[in-house]
């Protein structure tokens, strides 16, 4: 008996060993795929246009998409739990309107900006409560949040509100140069910080790991004694807060707030997150991947600009990429289901 046992252990070991790298990092593969697509696009554009990739261009992609980056980080949390948040574009727009209006009334930005974040968090909390405590589908609950924020934006004003507040405009206007055309704005720094904090939360805190656990199998997570309800609620709060912050950044970016801002942004955000390798069924994905996804999105926009063709190609290309990723994800899931 003893001799067979050692053989058996050996066999089991043999199963686990050869693909050690794959076994450890399988969930990063979609992220690598996104990086591959990004690189392919850059190389292709470089070959086609001759002079494409410049420090200015890279810098401007970060600048132009910092709001989207922040939204994508928040969305990643929600999608990782297996949910979805359709309210982010509208919340970004509404908090922008609210902030611009408060600033116009003379409140200092040091009060206004936190208020905007808190408002976003509050709407996120509302969505989370509907999802967690009243079993409303995330899609519908966040839809209600979207309607609410859209309407409230119009309640604030039907017209665009110009922002003249110095600290807010400083966020966008300041270009920290780094020579040879490289620059970064405070909005870009904030966006990158959000990525960093988001990645840290997910990788190094129990809250973050519980987010993955809930997305992997909510029932199991509950059986393991993990705080499922609190975690799901918090994920929507994180997304709402990010939307509030995106409101600040977007207001700074455009120098004004307009109630029609951010229509369809929720779709861009979801697309970026999925392209970045996050599984829509939850439980697998990374904030860094979502960042890559946003860069892919920005790069598509830039290339289409360079080509001088219609901007509508952006949405079509994003849709096609989204489809590609979803189909591939579906195939992966089907294959692993067969193996079981």
């Amino acid at each position: 008996m003893t001799s067979t046992q050692t053989v058996l252990t050996g066999e089991l070991r043999a199963v686990t060993r050869p693909h050690r790298f794959m076994a450890r990092h399988a969930s990063w593969i979609p992220v690598f795929a996104a990086v591959g697509i990004l690189v392919a696009m850059v190389v292709g554009a470089q070959l086609y246009f001759g002079k494409f990739l410049t420090p200015r261009l890279v810098s401007s992609i970060l600048l132009d998409n910092s709001y989207l980056l922040i939204l994508a980080v928040g969305m990643t949390f929600v999608i990782l739990t297996g949910g979805i948040d359709l309210s982010v574009g509208a919340v970004m727009s509404f908090t922008g309107m609210m902030g611009a209006s408060l600033l116009r009334q003379g409140l200092p930005s040091s009060v206004v900006a936190p208020t905007m974040l808190a408002t976003g968090a509050l709407i996120g909390l509302g969505v989370g409560v509907l999802v967690q405590y009243f079993d409303v589908q995330p899609f519908i609950a966040s839809l209600a949040g979207m309607f609410l924020a859209r309407g409230l934006g119009f309640v604030v004003s039907l017209n665009s509100i110009k922002v003249t507040d110095r600290p807010i405009l400083w966020l966008q206007g300041t270009r920290l140069q780094a020579g040879s055309g490289w620059y970064i704005t405070p909005t870009g720094i904030i966006a990158l910080l959000v990525v960093l904090v988001g990645a840290g939360l997910l990788a190094y805190t129990r809250f973050g790991r519980t987010v993955y656990a809930v997305g992997g199998n909510e029932q199991s997570a509950r059986l393991m004694g993990l705080p499922v309800a609190r975690t799901k609620l918090l994920a929507y709060v994180v997304s709402g807060t990010c939307a509030g912050l995106a409101g600040v950044i977007f207001t700074a970016y455009t120098g004004a707030a307009y109630p029609l801002n951010g229509i369809g942004t929720e779709l861009d955000t979801i697309a970026a997150v999925v392209i970045g390798g996050t599984l829509l069924t939850g439980g697998s994905g990374f904030v860094v991947g979502s960042m890559i996804g946003v860069f892919v999105y920005g790069m598509i926009k830039t290339i289409i600009n360079f080509l001088g063709v219609d901007q509508s190609w952006t949405r079509i290309t994003i849709g096609a990429l989204l489809l590609l990723f979803v189909v591939v994800q579906r195939l992966i899931v089907a294959r692993s289901a067969r193996r079981r």
């Binding site: 252990t9 089991l12 050690r20 076994a23 450890r24």
Partner: peptide, 14 residues
């Protein structure tokens, strides 16, 4: 008495 790579993803195992 098990030798399983703790850093590997559980779903990749039989």
């Amino acid at each position: 008495g098990l030798e399983i790579d703790p850093a590997s993803v559980l779903g990749t195992h039989p």
